[in-house]
């Protein structure tokens, strides 16, 4: 550990010294040191940096889509359909003559929105159910875990389809549907984590001090579970993007002409042998982004999870 730190970049003045000081003078410094050391561990892993780079690129692509896109992503041209990649169309054109690079750039916004919203819905839901089940135990645990089992053993497609069908097709509803299928594994994980800490001395101490169950769960148990939940959801990003693509394939995800990557991929399927770039380009985009999220998730686990060190 320390060896790693010392072989790092050359010293950079007082801040670095402060971050590495043996004697800590304030809680802020302690926290900053912890973060910094975590970052050093993270940065020493090339795959982690690649993962981070990819995710940052995705975010930049989404933000600056109008600037980097070379064409209107919706502009069609029957004369210029199915053109292979060239100087004019970097990634070629699709079956209606739309520029694929521009569509991928704009599609980054949709992809990012899907993964973020799913994470924002599924993580808190799973966390809540898992911690409550784990902390309270007894019949609450049994009932909630049965529910989790039922949801887990559902054919994923049916569940998502059913929600989409009930809510109506469209991207927002697809997102909700995917989120509703993504929470059970998180709940299981959160429950397992809760079980390991609920007998801990400090929890007992808090309880003796008169804290309510709700307070204990929200203030003391959930924070313990959050790192592993974040890691888990990061690792699930690829699955989320591919599920969205699957719904798009059945006509239930993003509706045309939206440049959602999954929808582009499934349209491109029909042209795979003749015009390979239609499927390959969005396919590679999905591949790279999910690779990025996975590498990032792995690295976060290495940094945040003390057991893995």
């Amino acid at each position: 550990m320390t060896a790693e730190v010392r072989t790092g970049a050359p010293a950079h003045g007082g801040l670095r010294a402060w971050l590495l000081a043996e004697t800590v003078t304030s809680p802020a410094q302690a926290r900053a040191q912890k973060l910094y050391l975590g970052w050093r561990r993270f940065a020493s892993n090339p795959l982690a940096l690649i993962g981070l780079g990819i995710v940052v690129m995705l975010i930049l692509l989404a933000i600056f889509a109008p600037l980097v896109a070379t064409y209107d992503p919706f502009a069609q041209s029957l004369e210029r359909r199915l053109l292979p990649p060239s100087g004019a169309h970097w990634l070629g054109t699709d079956e209606l003559g739309r520029d694929i690079w521009s569509r991928i750039a704009y599609g980054a916004r949709i992809t990012l929105m899907i993964v973020l919203l799913v994470a924002l819905i599924a993580a808190p839901l799973g966390l809540l159910i898992g911690t409550v089940a784990g902390y309270l135990g007894g019949w609450v645990d049994v009932a909630l875990m049965r529910l989790v089992d039922v949801f887990l053993s559902f054919p994923g497609l049916i569940l998502a389809l059913a929600f989409v069908a009930a809510l109506g097709s469209g991207l927002e509803n697809a997102i909700i549907a995917i989120a509703l299928t993504a929470w059970p594994p998180i709940a299981r994980l959160a429950r397992a984590e809760t079980l390991t800490v609920r007998r801990a001395d400090y929890i007992a101490a808090v309880r003796l001090a008169g804290a309510s169950d709700l307070r204990i769960i929200v203030r003391h148990i959930m924070p313990i579970c959050i790192p592993s939940v974040i890691i888990r959801i990061t690792l699930n990003m690829a699955g989320i993007i591919l599920t969205a693509a699957g719904l798009g394939f059945l006509g239930l995800g993003a509706q045309p002409p939206s440049p959602e990557w999954g929808a582009m991929l499934s349209t491109g399927r029909a042209y795979m042998l003749g015009s390979w770039w239609l499927a390959a380009m969005p396919g590679i985009a999905i591949l790279v982004v999910s690779l990025g999220f996975n590498l990032l998730g792995d690295a976060l686990r290495d940094v945040l999870d003390p057991r893995a060190s």
């Binding site: 029957l78 209606l96 097709s169 059945l250 006509g251 509706q255 045309p256 002409p257």
Partner: peptide, 30 residues
């Protein structure tokens, strides 16, 4: 529906309609 040529012609129509101010919202279904 999802079978050819429905998505292609629908999107083609949608793009041309947009040029004259008609916003066409597409719903694909089984």
């Amino acid at each position: 529906g999802t079978a050819f040529p429905a998505p292609d012609i629908a999107q083609h129509f949608q793009a041309n309609a947009a040029k004259v101010g008609i916003r066409v919202e597409i719903e694909q279904m089984a």
